[in-house]
């Protein structure tokens, strides 16, 4: 009898533990595993057309906290010196010829292709989304995320998380109507050093851009202390000077 009660108690505890899985806590851990609080990185963006033609962009980026990211294009020559800044839901683009920052939106794309500005200027998922439901499976967790505000690029996001590493394998992005906008595939787990182990490649495809594909490849992700003044309009023309 005692043994039966013990089994029931253990079962109840396990069920409670599973129920108590906090999706938002998992989301925060995923954010931290994807990148440190304050860091710099290089990214190569590749847009691939159905006929195989490619356009490549090289960017240097710095990110601080949950919602500040600044980037500058290093190549191609036609884009060199363009910088982007995101502070929360505010996004700006600085074009050297134009000589002053202009406001842009998360739905636009400074590079063209399947990635939009929200993908390129990605801030922490936990700053934009609440986890409304969590499912567990043999492959890991499925986090059902809902945008905190209407200004977020994708209203609903389904994040498939590797339970062991707490890193996303795939993210499906939906409009509020439920229409699938794009899939993001996280590939090639790589040790960048200093405890940063994360996917080095993100691929994306979209039913809206049939047969087109875009890829982001990450390199030299390094923890770095960054001043808040870097993430301001006045500093946008000078982002490249942060490179060491």
């Amino acid at each position: 009898m005692k043994k039966t009660i013990l089994i029931i108690l253990i079962s109840l505890y396990s069920a409670a533990a599973a129920f108590a899985l906090d999706g938002n806590e998992i989301l925060k851990k995923v954010d931290r595993n994807l990148n440190p609080e304050s860091f710099e990185m290089y990214r190569k963006l590749i847009n691939i057309e159905p006929n195989g033609l490619k356009k490549e962009f090289l960017m240097y980026s710095v990110k601080k906290g949950k919602e500040k990211i600044a980037s500058v294009f290093l190549s191609p020559a036609s884009e060199k010196g363009r910088s982007t800044l995101r502070v929360g839901e505010n996004m700006w683009l600085y074009i050297p010829n134009v000589g002053k920052p202009i406001r842009i939106t998360s739905l636009q794309s400074v590079t063209g292709g399947v990635f939009n500005n929200a993908d390129i200027m990605r801030v922490d998922y936990s700053s934009e989304y609440n986890c409304e439901k969590i499912e567990t499976s043999d492959d890991g967790y499925v986090l059902h995320l809902k945008a905190k505000t209407s200004s977020v690029a994708y209203d609903i996001v389904k994040m498939f998380v590797d339970v062991k590493r707490l890193l996303p394998n795939k993210i499906a992005c939906y409009a509020s109507s439920g229409m699938l906008i794009k899939n993001l595939y996280f590939k090639n787990i790589k040790d960048f050093g200093d405890g940063i182990v994360r996917p080095a490649v993100i691929e994306t495809d979209s039913p809206l851009y049939k047969d087109y594909k875009s890829i982001i490849i990450f390199a030299k992700i390094k923890k770095r202390k960054l001043s808040d003044e870097i993430f301001t309009l006045n500093y946008m023309p000078k982002v490249e000077s942060l490179r060491q």
Partner: peptide, 8 residues
């Protein structure tokens, strides 16, 4: 296409 571009 099934291009894989992972060289960096």
């Amino acid at each position: 296409f099934d291009t894989e571009v992972t060289d960096f």
